[in-house]
Design a protein around this nucleic acid. Sequence first.
DNA 1: GTCTATATAGGGATAGAC
DNA 2: GTCTATCCCTATATAGAC
Lengths: 189, 189
Amino acid sequence: MTTRTGRRGEARERVVQAAVRLIARHGVEGTSLQMIADELGVTKAAVYHQFQTKEDIVVAVVRPIFGELLDAVDAAERRPTRAAQVDAGIRGLIDVLLRHREIAAAFAGDPVIFNVVRADAELNGLVERMGLLLAGPDPDPATRIAVSLVGSGVAAGAADPALTDLDDDTLREGLLVCARRALGLPDNG
Amino acid sequence: MTTRTGRRGEARERVVQAAVRLIARHGVEGTSLQMIADELGVTKAAVYHQFQTKEDIVVAVVRPIFGELLDAVDAAERRPTRAAQVDAGIRGLIDVLLRHREIAAAFAGDPVIFNVVRADAELNGLVERMGLLLAGPDPDPATRIAVSLVGSGVAAGAADPALTDLDDDTLREGLLVCARRALGLPDNG
DNA sequence: GTCTATATAGGGATAGAC
DNA sequence: GTCTATCCCTATATAGAC
């Protein structure tokens, strides 16, 4: 099952990383197994040795990032006050997306990823927890709109090709200020 | 070229409308000519009678919406003060996206549409004019980030399936307030 | 872990009849 | 304006050798 030249799961991880790069540029539907194989310099069959289906690759791309988001949501929910929870939630979301700047846009807009998330109760539940964290229970329309705009806007901003010249810290600070304003929060935490 | 049963371009328009619905849900790459044909109850060949290539269909979907955006940018640039220009720009952008709520998300995130726009000097120039309108010349990083977040966030918000229960006016008001805040503008125009 | 080879389906696109 | 039929290519996926 494994070779002695590599640690367990190394080839698998290479597939995931290649998939991330390609999906970021072409979207899930625009990324073929052939493209992934070419990126790695192997054949499609080698990719299929690691994953049974293309969807499995998408899941392998999405899951770990949602894992990081889960940690962020867990930590945010443990904060004592609502204000601190919102603050930690928005910071956590931005941090996760910045650690995955390349692929962040696909999380906001790719229809396949959208469906993968929606079809998975665990992933879907996490999205709802994040929404509840930022919007609170029974939010009014204005709040719902703000959360929607900020969520998508932060993801798209983190991945925006026009902002690749900005380093992570500059981008984090800018997104944070902008998101807090959009949500109608005071300018500091 | 035309039949006596329909006005000129009627079938062509039906193809565009079907494409809009499908692209909104599945993205450009996730939408096949077969799907468009099935949606209309015709064959692929009938669709090809109206458009030579799939990309032509995408262009026909994108162009008229950019036409509306062009009008909005033109009008905004004629305003006397910078503040009025920004205000008209953001209002115009939101209005155009709300008139096309279904497909709005694809304009923010679909890789194929992104490339179609980037490859067309006219469309690309319009995007740059809108950016200049909102950010001004030589914007600092914070402003560039805010414009990026607002642009994508407004498009995604207008199309968000979670907000389909809100009518256009509620959504317009919410997006406007939120966008103005994110850009650091005073709460009214 | 990777290869060649292949099965099967669907994609975009064209030719020519009605 | 639409149809049938077809071409060619690429897609996902599998089988079995090395």
